[in-house]
Design a protein around this nucleic acid. Structure first.
Length: 459
RNA sequence: GUGGUUGUAGCUCAGUUGGUUAGAGCAUCAGAUUGUGGUUCUGAGGGUCGCGGGUUCGAAUCCCGUCUUCCACCCCA
């Protein structure tokens, strides 16, 4: 008995309908990326672990899929060589891993190709990434990111343009979203203001959970990280700040203005909002001081996009990183980028039924036939129809007509062309309209005109 | 990595306190209809009950392990 086939945890197969819908998302995103001047690149699925390790924090390292070395990787090692634990062993037997995101490979790409790149470099990349996470809602072990980054430009115009890009893409897809904007420098300023500048990461991770677990639980978490109660009481009014983005900015100015970093962050956000007032995106955008984002390479603006009316984490996120290429030996190059999570966007669109009906790549014409002679009769016509730009196929077997028509029906092929003895005798073909159920027999010479007419009536 | 949850036909699910030969709907295939689909009728095929072990005279059912599903935490697209 053959074993039941299966696929690894957290991975999925995509059938024709899902693939068509996914391509609809990719095509929409790609079109908009082109519209804003981004150019595509691709990088390998696997990277050297030295490239990946340490870029995503301690948690991120754990979530890397590692590839075991080829060959007899244990040759030359003895049992007593300190290979007792998994952690020790893995360092000796694995030196490659599957990429965890597209940003770090991009940084590596930029450093390696710096002499060939025309800066500022606007690149996009649509490829799968892998994380050894436990799967759950909206979380997969293999998923596709659609990244757009500008590297080699400090201008905040790039940030503004990314918001516009987000607006453009989700408007085309029909997904209602809100963009949350914050700035790491403001968070640093807040950390300084409460007297714990060294605990920036702990503070950001804790306040990121504010709307989920509430101010009390956040305070407890901070206390458990060793933040004093005095500091926490300073933080509370900042987090509970209400009002418009502009009001928050001005009130923050009086609180954290003493911090040079914080002041810089406030200036950046003000400038970004100034640009956005000119751009006037259709979506809602707002300053959200509780937005922190885990990836610790962000240094300036940070964004997160959430779908409205959806039980889903962020479907898109990004920010500015001032020195990502520095770790690869190319300091002082700033970049800003955004990543669209295609799989989560798919899930939201599926749940909200936002896919257009005709996303499948459909056959327009199916030839039905009853044997070798009829098949030969159809072949030239099939070629002519394809050459004229119609998707067409010839049923490959001389099955019963019932079966052939059922094939057309299930594949939602709108037109069936029949050729049997009668049609062959007078150089004609019978065309059946599968939607209307009607059919007529026309001369072969009139088929292309018929199709052209049919196509015009579809619009 | 932590906690919970799920697994029976291709799919969605029944299956009584542990008891004869594990059922239904949908789907598939065949026929009613030797050249007319989506409706109907008749019939057929299809299951190591996720996998491995244990308890028992007897396990889909109880116990343990493991894999998988989904959910929460951590973290994140």
């Amino acid at each position: 008995m053959a074993q039941k086939p299966s696929i690894p945890k957290g991975t999925r197969d995509f059938g024709p309908l899902e693939t068509a819908r996914r391509n609809y998302i990719f095509d929409t995103i790609r079109t908009v990326f082109h519209r804003y001047g981004y150019q595509p690149i691709e990088t390998p699925a696997m990277e050297n672990l030295t490239t990946l390790l340490g870029k995503y924090g301690e948690e991120g390292d754990k979530l890397l899929f590692r590839i075991v070395n080829s060959g007899d990787f244990m040759a030359g090692y003895q049992a007593e060589d300190g290979l007792a634990s998994s952690a020790q062993l893995i360092q000796h037997i694995s030196e490659k891993g599957l990429r965890y995101d597209l940003t770090v490979p991009f940084a590596r790409f930029v450093v390696q190709n710096r002499n060939d790149i025309n800066f500022p470099f606007k690149r996009y990349q649509i490829q799968p990434v892998w994380r050894a996470d436990r799967p759950q809602k909206g979380r997969y072990r293999e998923f596709t990111q659609c990244d757009a980054d500008v590297i080699g430009s400090d201008s905040l115009l790039n940030e503004a343009e990314l918001v516009q890009l987000v607006d453009d893409i989700f408007a085309r897809l029909g997904v209602a979203v809100v963009v949350k904007i914050n700035n790491r420098k403001i968070l640093a300023g807040i950390a300084e203001y409460i007297g714990n500048p060294d605990c920036l990461t702990d503070i950001t991770v804790a306040i990121d959970k504010l709307d989920k677990i509430g101010i009390e639980a956040v305070s407890q978490e901070l206390a458990s990280k060793g933040i004093s109660s005095g500091s926490i009481s300073l933080l509370q009014p900042v987090l509970e700040m209400e009002g418009s983005s502009a009001e928050k900015l001005s009130r923050l100015g009086s609180l954290i203005g003493g911090s040079e970093t914080g002041r810089k962050g406030l200036e950046e956000v003000s400038q970004l909002f100034g640009y956005l007032e000119q751009i006037k995106p259709g979506l809602t955008y707002e300053l959200d001081l509780t937005l922190a984002r885990g990836l610790n390479y962000y240094t300036g603006a940070i964004f997160e996009v959430k779908a409205l009316h959806a039980q889903m984490g962020s479907i898109c996120g990004g920010g500015r990183y001032d020195d990502l290429t520095g770790i690869f030996g190319m300091p002082g190059v700033s970049g800003v980028g955004i990543s669209f999570g295609a799989d989560r966007i798919y899930d939201v669109m599926r749940d909200q039924q936002l896919f257009p009906l005709a996303t499948a790549a459909n056959t327009a014409v199916l030839f039905v036939h009853f044997g070798e002679a009829e098949m030969l009769y159809c072949l030239p016509l099939l070629s002519a129809i394809r050459k004229a730009g119609f998707n067409a196929e010839l049923y490959p077997d001389a099955d019963k007509m019932k079966k052939q028509l059922k094939y057309a029906d299930q594949k939602k092929i709108p037109l069936v062309m029949l050729a049997g003895e009668t049609e062959m005798a007078n150089a004609s073909v019978t065309i059946k309209d599968m939607v209307a159920g009607s059919q007529e027999t026309i001369p072969v010479s009139g088929v292309l005109a018929y199709l052209a007419h049919w196509q015009n009536n579809q619009r």
